[in-house]
Structures are given as structure tokens and as C-alpha cells.
Amino acid sequence: MNPAATSWAFEAQDLERLDALLGAFLDGSQARCALLLDRTGRLLTAAGDDAGFDRVSFASLAAADFGASDQLARLLGEREFRSLYHQGENGSMYLVDVAGHAILAALFDARTTLGRVRLKTKAVVPEFASLFAQIAARDRTVGARLEAGWLTEVEDEIDRLFAE
């Protein structure tokens, strides 16, 4: 695997398109909240009512959960487990792989059903996958457009933040 495959540079129009797809998915599925994260645990974008939970922690844990399931699949001779479902008393969570690039997480409650969420997920994942393929094909040199002087200022801030 090429490490660059986990390196992303998102443009404003990428986010607009991801958000539009996520919004449409949310409307169709009637999920409470939908999040898109990369496979290393970084939140890309989210839509819906997140009820104030810690989305950064969520992304990190969900990606680890998904990664662990992937390894379990391989142990069992499967290529991958493409989705994960966790059922709670008041809310449930459905996670699905987006072409190895990302994870779509849908949080939902009694206002909808797992079947409906699954169905809508199946429809939207190829669209997300196509968009990620386009983003991945572009130059992802992260620092190319950072302003001159940015590095020095970041280094100064690192010294200030990580001080006794």
C-alpha cells in the first residue's frame, strides 16, 4: 500500500459535493446524524443532529473499530467486512466502507429502520467512492499552498504550547 493513499487535500468544492451527498443520504435514510471519516480516524465532514458528542473522539474510535473488524475478517478468511452495525437501546450505529478510502457512519433511532438506512447507504456509497477516486487522483502535496512564514509561526506555537 502506498502511504500517500491516506494523505488528502480537500478543496472547497470537494467538501460541497461531499456535504451535498451526505445531506441527501440523511434526508433519504432519516438517520439522525451522518459522519464521513477517513480510514485513519480523521473526521472529514458531518451532517444532521450530533447532539453535541465529541466528533473527533468518535472518528478515532470508529476507524479503529472498523480497522479491527477488517483484521477479524481476514482471520476468518474473508477479504473484508464491508459494514458494521451496533445496536443500542435508544440509538444505533451503522458503519460502511467507502472503497477503502473512508467510512460512512450513520447514527439513527426509532424514527427509521436499519433496512432503510442500509438501502440508502448502498445507493450513496458508489457516489462517495467516485468522488474520493477523483480527489485521490489529484496532486496531494499538502504544503504546496501554505503561506510563506506559516512554518515558522507553527514552530513558534509548538514551542509555546508544549512548554512546562
Binding site: A9, F10, D14, L15, R42, L44, V142, R145
Partner: peptide
């Protein structure tokens, strides 16, 4: 490896 989001202007490492 890293992620830069030019829309929300975030860099994650």
C-alpha cells in the same frame, strides 16, 4: 498521511 482541508482550513497530523 496528513490531511489538509482547504474548505474548513484544517490540517490534521
Amino acid at each position: 498521511m496528513s490531511m489538509i482541508n482547504y474548505a474548513s482550513r484544517e490540517i490534521n497530523c
